[in-house]
């Protein structure tokens, strides 16, 4: 429910987005401030981890992929013309490397769940001990969605709103199409939760 007290979404004085902050760090790094690279790693690694996990890497592979992409960034820092594009570059690189890694491992190991995520985060008995009831309901509903929606929502949840350019690039969608898809995924999620009497909007 919108009230006058609550800030409107999308005002011009929004704090800088993840993409903006990442771009600023990368710019400083390229100006010779080595410490800025560490700040960039702290900022972007959690998102990159989720990109890798959403694209089929197990936890160990995700860690390797994220680390390799960082090394590649430093090797190829000169190829990125616009510092502001660094988050998009990282996300795209992690996505590609994740696909490649996951494809190779699917060829060598049989994944009985057949999902993009090799089973580890499927609802299981351990979920009840880690998550609140509300989170369990949400996670259950998310897992009912299509693979595409699960991927998209997981990554969107770790981005700031103005960064959707980067997300659309990461998911190889034309820029205009991420909105409706995201909207459809969220609508489905909301419908499914609304149908569950245990769910309460907060």
């Amino acid at each position: 429910m919108l009230t006058d007290d609550e800030p409107d979404v999308g005002l011009a004085d929004d704090p800088p987005s993840l993409g903006d902050r990442a771009g600023a760090c990368f710019h400083r790094y390229r100006e010779g401030q080595d410490q800025a690279l560490g700040e960039l790693v702290d900022l972007a690694t959690p998102l990159l981890w989720n990109v890798a996990r959403a694209h089929g890497c197990d936890r160990e592979q995700a860690e390797d992929v994220v680390q390799d992409v960082w090394i590649r960034l430093v090797d190829r820092a000169a190829d990125i013309r616009d510092s502001g594009a660094v988050l998009g570059w990282l996300v795209v690189s992690v996505k590609r490397e994740s696909w490649r890694t996951a494809r190779v491992s699917r060829r060598t190991t049989y994944d009985p769940t057949g999902t993009v995520d090799p089973g580890e985060t499927e609802p299981g008995p351990e979920v009840a001990t880690i998550l609140t009831e509300r989170q369990q309901l949400l996670w259950g509903a998310v897992n009912e969605l299509s693979e595409r929606c699960r991927q998209l929502l997981r990554i969107v949840a770790f981005c700031d709103r103005p960064d959707y350019d980067e997300i659309s690039a990461a998911l190889s969608m034309p820029r205009g199409s991420i909105g409706p898809t995201r909207g459809r995924c969220l609508d489905k999620l909301r419908q499914s939760l609304a149908a569950d009497e245990r769910w309460e909007d907060r």
């Binding site: 979404v9 985060t121 996670w139 998310v142 709103r161 909105g179 999620l189 909007d201």
Partner: peptide, 25 residues
Amino acid sequence: LGLAPLDEVDMRLLEDLRETVDRLD
């Protein structure tokens, strides 16, 4: 960009999802 704006409920769901993923994985 032709994006449907997110409303408050969407934003909270995404926040909840982020916290859930952070706990689970």
